[in-house]
């Protein structure tokens, strides 16, 4: 079970304030340290260690790159950004996020073609369902199954860029 510390905000704030005060004192007392590359590298290292401890506690791993062995082919046209997150405990699961300038419909069509060609069995949400959700033309989704793997793929209209946000969740041993 994840450690769930609800409301120790006061404690956290106190720690943060103390840390900040120490840092300020340290920065004021050691003017040299500010521009000292060795100290800066050490500070960076400590910060990254803290980040790693968060990911370890949350049992996830995050990367901006999609691993090559991810079982669903990544969309490659007009890409704005990509991200990847996977579980490090329990059932193997991973989620890929891709932003593209292309339209949701064309992206979704591309994925259907690619997945079928790769041997995935697809269940595609009917337009009736998306209409019922009030997102006709803006939201597409499908479920895929292949051997003991499953995927859930969503293509959504990005209201800001008018491009598409792609979210692919992969599960093993379904």
């Amino acid at each position: 079970m994840k450690v769930n510390l609800i409301k120790p905000l006061t404690f956290a704030l106190a720690i943060s304030t103390v840390t900040m005060a120490n840092t300020i004192a340290s920065a004021q007392g050691q003017e040299k340290g500010k521009s000292d590359p060795a100290t800066a590298a050490q500070n960076l290292k400590v910060a990254k260690q803290k980040y790693d401890s968060v990911l370890t506690a949350a049992h996830v791993n995050i990367s901006p790159q999609i691993p090559r062995n991810f079982p669903v082919p990544p969309y490659t046209s007009n890409i704005v950004s990509t991200s990847f997150i996977n579980s490090t405990k329990g059932s193997p699961t991973a989620t890929v996020g891709i932003s593209t300038k292309d339209s949701p419909e064309s992206v979704f069509q591309w994925y259907q073609t690619q997945l079928r060609a790769s041997g995935w069995t697809l269940t595609v949400a009917s337009p009736k369902l998306t209409a019922k959700l009030g997102k006709e033309g803006q939201f597409f989704m499908l479920d895929g199954a292949k051997e003991k793997q499953g995927i859930k793929l969503f293509c959504m209209l990005d209201q800001v860029s008018k491009g598409t946000k792609i979210n692919i969740t992969w599960l093993k041993n379904r």
């Binding site: 409301k7 120790p8 720690i15 943060s16 968060v54 370890t56 506690a57």
Partner: peptide, 11 residues
């Protein structure tokens, strides 16, 4: 959020 890693705080 994570003011003091790795402990999380709901805010």
């Amino acid at each position: 959020f994570y003011p003091v890693p790795p402990f999380k705080v709901e805010f």
